[in-house]
Design a protein around this nucleic acid. Structure first.
Length: 215
DNA sequence: TGCCAGGCCGGGT
DNA sequence: ACCCGGCATGGC
């Protein structure tokens, strides 16, 4: 069975087992963009508290964050961890967003995918996963998101080498699946769910993982 | 309790 | 070009 078939069958099975994950469905692209930074190496529950704080303070907007002092922003996002560095990163992202696109989401996502990705990566504190999360989950653009779980699952099943880069793994999915943002969205979220359930760090393998059936 | 969470940067080899 | 420490809160 070739990689394309493996990935499609695996997707179908995960969707059946876990159901749609509905990541970042309804609170709007700007909030998603903020969440993408806050969730760096951090569990989502903590991120929700930080976002709630921003909402309660009436600061969940580009202009509000743009005009806020970094240390005040840091206090609001404190529950998300790494709050000092994340406050700087968030300010940097919003500054770019305001200066480059007038704080206009529509304008931002009317730019072509690859060009926008390059620009996002040039913002300090925005790495490949955060950039792809923004493109996919805020912009609904077909840019596959790779994370630690994705890497671990593929490596443990010998679908990728340990020394594979982020872009190697991203391409593995994008080259073997139809270019479909809705599917990328679900697929990544499902892989995280599998990772949490079957493929944890510091365990030598994940034999109960449903991917075994296809290999 | 120690380990982990939807990473990324910067400094040292 | 890699490798690694630092960043920090909350949940199990």
């Amino acid at each position: 069975m070739n990689n394309s078939r493996i990935l499609k069958k695996y997707y179908d099975k995960l969707l059946k087992n876990f159901g749609p994950q509905r990541w970042w469905p309804g609170d709007g692209p700007f909030e998603v963009m903020v969440g993408a930074v806050l969730t760096q190496n951090t569990n989502w529950g903590n991120v929700e508290r930080a976002i709630d704080n921003l909402k309660q303070a009436g600061k969940l907007s580009a202009t509000a964050i743009h005009n806020m002092r970094t240390d005040q922003l840091a206090q609001l996002i404190r529950p998300s961890g790494y709050f000092n560095i994340k406050a700087k990163r968030l300010k940097g992202l919003i500054k770019w967003f305001v200066n480059r696109f007038d704080g206009d989401i529509e304008k931002m996502f009317s730019r072509d995918l690859q060009g926008l990705r390059e620009e996002l990566l040039s913002v300090k504190g925005i790495g490949p996963e955060t950039a792809d999360s923004i493109l996919l989950y805020a912009g609904n653009l077909p840019s596959f998101v790779v994370d630690a779980y994705t890497y671990r699952i593929l490596v443990r099943h010998n679908l990728m080498f340990e020394e594979s880069t982020y872009d190697d793994i991203k391409s593995f999915f994008e080259d073997n699946l139809p270019e479909d943002a809705a599917m990328y969205n679900e697929y990544h979220a499902l892989l995280v769910q599998v990772g949490k359930t079957y493929c944890k760090p510091r365990e030598p393998s994940c034999k109960a993982c449903p991917l075994h059936e296809f290999l």
